[in-house]
Design a protein around this nucleic acid. Structure first.
Lengths: 210, 210, 210, 210
DNA sequence: TATGAATGAGGATTCATTCAT
DNA sequence: AATGAATGAATCCTCATTCAT
């Protein structure tokens, strides 16, 4: 339910914000509505004025994150592109930058990503949102690979959809292993490596290392 | 607790087997001990003669799977290696085969993998087992990449550990997206594509598509 | 609380009217104050400006119905009485007409009667009102029977109070079974049958069917 | 759920018995599961081993009552019938006895009847049970009246179904008014009066008071 | 060893009512 | 007078685990 007065809006926002914190701290299962309400400084019952259930507020938190990630991507797109000698250099630069962006966003919200990952394993609606977050990344890759294949810049003996899904998974899961499972990696080196793996696997950087 | 009598051993085995079925069907959270016991044809209380908790029997089921996967890999290693013209051909063949093996195992036990993935998000012990299953795959890749780098067969401008983790994630997550999230892929094409992406990203198949 | 301004009176009336509708639709327990307020087009809090509780507004609705039923009876009493050959004919006519009136009123407000019946089972005040509605009918019958016994028109081997209660119950409960429990009956036939049972049971129509 | 061991059966029986007591004392709405469990001397959770909800145990209590009433009727049917001068005398005797039986049973379980009446106003399943209890009485009356009409013992200008329902309602509601609403009546006089009203209304005792 | 009954902590949700604006 | 936000007590039900036989 959406409040009409300023006071209501503040309360609702406080609940969403508190929920994001608590979910990040205690994950989904260990979080209970009472935690969220008390963290937001409201009565237990007030929660139910705005949300029907713990699932619903979680959805809101997850959608917020999705929205912020998209906004993040857009603002970042305004960055000026340097001049390159070769098209392959530019592609490597672009891909590395996109991966870096994804990793950085994951890093910033790692705890929330971890919970979303968790909830997606037992809640279909959240699974859909999780897939949605992923899709933006993968669909974009799919289109890029197809374009590069047409332009003779990428090997055309592989299926672009398979490749996009696999390479998307590579970045996505690498971030998870790094930031949620805490295997020790480092942002710049990760972005560089993933960029190289990505471009070389598609053939973009083929002559470079020859 | 490990039973001494034959009857006890049968009961215990029946519980583990029933648990694997029920966990695969209803995931971890929705499964309750009563389900497992009744599926095993024993009384509810009997469960606690052999296991301390739901977590413990799950651990056993997960370890069983891990054991079977390792056995699978070993038996498969006995397959005869054909004669190749070039070392790159052989590497592609080996890597594709390893990936195919992983995908096939995942396919066979997809439901259980999905549950392990779920439980690993909120249970540290299971997370360790999950990492263990993953490590076999990734450590092997790490060693291989290092060896290939030393032998001049792979690009040496990337960190082998980063690459192994990333490529391992690629295969692992691809399997999840395919078999748990049900994006439509096909085993042979998947193994072939993953093999090509893997080898090319490391430089092994560089000349091939030139 | 009774409002002084015209606006207040309108709001209060809107609440009572809305309450009657909602109570008839959802019975008492399933009705909540928010329903009534929103049906009346007022804010939730406004309700409590005029009524102390859900019970209180229900009492008002019930009393309204009682008032209307009495008015109904009164207006009906103005109907001209035809000329009869025998006193028994006239009594049958009067009793049938009274029963018909009660049944018709019940029919018109069946849903509300049903709720009153419900609330009377757990609320003493409403039980009193329910009895009140009933009493008008039964006391009148009691007096009539006594008079007829004195005049030799009715058997005097039965207690008028027992008989009045029993016969009142007969009509009252018949209406409930018909209109709330939905056993299929028909108004005219019902009024005729009840009238005959009533008069004969008291001896008024004894010779008639002999 | 039905227990297999003696111990379980005792617990279940204790719960049903406790429920009957508590329902009779506090009616349905004010009764909560905790009351029943503690009255039965069991833990709260034990209740749910045997019953899914408060509604379900109430159904059991109500069905118990229904069963006992039927048994009551049957055993009573064995009473020897005296010799009468006239058929009307015998009918009056039989009807009075049946009414007395119904009133006595109601008297014995008045509190439970009251609750069943209550629950039937908001629970469809209980309403069905309530109707069932009533039906035994009314159907029997319906058949009797038809038979008496065929044999010329009862007026045939009224519909037997209407009459049976009305007269059944008369007895049923009289009992309620007496034993639940506590209007002061007395068993023997009530049975006598109801018997006379019943027979005379149908014409059976027509000459008697002539 | 097996059985099935008993336990009781724990958490979600509702809604009549009060309060601040 | 009206609004709608806030309150929090009350109660149901689940289920992992323990116990008595």
């Amino acid at each position: 339910m959406i409040p009409t007065t300023r006071r209501g809006q503040q309360t609702r926002a406080a609940l969403v914000s508190a929920a994001a914190d608590v979910f990040a701290e205690k994950q989904f299962l260990a979080t209970n509505v009472a935690d969220i309400a008390s963290r937001a400084g409201t009565a237990h019952g007030t929660f139910y004025r705005y949300f029907d259930s713990k699932e619903e507020i979680f959805r809101e938190v997850a959608l917020d994150l999705q929205r912020r990630m998209r906004a993040h991507g857009a603002e970042d797109a305004a960055v000026e592109v340097p001049v390159f000698d070769a098209i392959e250099d530019e592609l490597l630069w672009r891909i590395t930058r996109a991966n870096r962006r994804y990793l950085a966003a994951y890093q910033e919200h790692a705890a929330l990503f971890a919970v979303i990952e968790q909830v997606a394993t037992f809640n279909d609606e959240l699974l859909a949102i999780r897939k949605e977050i992923r899709r933006g990344f993968v669909d974009h890759a799919h289109a890029s690979i197809q374009r590069m294949q047409h332009e003779g810049l990428a090997f055309d003996d592989i299926d672009a959809r398979y490749a996009a899904s696999a390479l998307g998974s590579m970045v996505d899961r690498f971030a998870y292993v790094w930031l949620v499972l805490h295997e020790p990696f480092e942002l710049d080196e990760a972005a560089r490596t993933l960029g190289l793996l990505w471009t070389r696997s598609l053939g973009l950087g083929a002559r470079r290392a020859g």
